[in-house]
Design a protein around this nucleic acid. Structure first.
Length: 294
DNA sequence: CGCGAGACCTGATAGC
DNA sequence: TGCTATCAGGTCTCGC
């Protein structure tokens, strides 16, 4: 089922692509802007993203409390409230957080708004509602942290770890890299970027990769994510950061969505295929199933 | 338990 | 011009 398709002339998706670099950028901005502030009121415009939590419970646990700090685990943004609750925000695919002034016009597709003690409002907006906004107790945060795989930009994510995980799995390498329980924070953009960098075809079976390739893949994941964090993430289509500004990594993408454009290494046209059920950007010359040494 | 397909959701767009 | 089918994709659920 992984046969190449005709290169797509479609426009880039209107997706937000909130992967690790974009969520980390959001975390840093939020930490600077809202840590130490008090939430004076919470308004809930839509309940779809609450994950079954009632609006009353959410409001009860957020109103009047201080935001102590903002952290991140994988693609999850965690606003640590006083004394011990945590407001979890997952942006799904199209979710956005904005920091607005009272005079700003209402945002379309608002789900939850947190008015701070300085008058500004953190707004969680998502036209599709794939994301999540929910208050967690300490034990639930611990469970989330434990469930997810290692943070790829921390020392615990080693080449040995990745080798061990991939060696005993028969799934496609792309499917495993997208699995948050194996490594937390990768999504479609950075998986494709890392696989291209390491010259690995996304439909390779994980257990067919040798140590050299896994080593290259590990290094590529770390490099690609680190570079994008420095550039404040990738803007794709209408993605904006907390201040409505685009990220800086878009023009540095090596393969993602460059369909028909020349490979930066060998100049062969970049192709679109489907692997692990996801649109995937590959160089058909550098990334092959048959000749992994290419 | 591992794997992979399908569901969820809505806006943009291609094609008729 | 207007309608419809298709696609995008993070994560969860379910069947094998």
């Amino acid at each position: 089922m992984d046969r190449p398709h005709v290169p797509s002339a479609r426009s880039p998706p209107k997706s937000i692509m909130a992967e690790l670099p974009e969520v980390e950028t959001m975390r840093r901005d939020l930490e600077r802007e809202v840590a130490g502030r008090r939430i004076v009121s919470t308004r809930i415009a839509q309940t779809r993203m609450l994950g079954g939590q009632s609006p009353e419970e959410l409001t009860r646990r957020t109103d009047g409390v201080i935001i102590r700090a903002v952290s991140r685990r994988g693609k999850f943004l965690l606003l640590h409230l006083a004394p011990s609750d945590t407001l979890l925000v997952h942006r799904g695919m199209t979710g956005n957080l904005f920091l607005r002034d009272p005079s700003d016009v209402e945002d379309a597709h608002l789900h939850v708004g947190l008015t701070l003690d300085d008058g500004r409002e953190v707004r969680v907006c998502d036209h599709r509602g794939f994301g999540e906004v929910r208050v967690l107790a300490e034990a639930e945060v611990d469970a989330l942290r434990a469930r997810l795989g290692p943070e790829p930009l921390r020392p615990e994510f080693t080449a040995d770890y990745l080798t061990g995980q991939l060696a005993r799995r028969t799934a496609l390498v792309k499917a495993l890299l997208l699995n948050q329980n194996l490594v937390a924070g990768l999504g479609n953009i950075y998986v494709d970027e890392a696989l291209w960098t390491a010259r690995i075809h996304p439909a390779r079976r994980a257990n067919t990769l040798g140590p050299i390739h896994v080593g290259a893949l590990h290094a590529a994941i770390v490099d690609v994510l680190s570079e994008s964090v420095v550039r404040r993430g990738t803007t794709f289509s209408d993605y904006k950061d907390l201040y409505g500004r685009p990220g800086g990594h878009s023009s540095f993408l090596r393969v993602f969505h460059r369909y028909g454009e020349p490979c930066l290494r060998c100049h062969a046209p970049i192709q679109r295929i489907v692997a692990a059920g996801r649109g995937s950007s590959i160089c058909p010359v550098c990334q092959t199933l048959a000749a992994p040494e290419c």
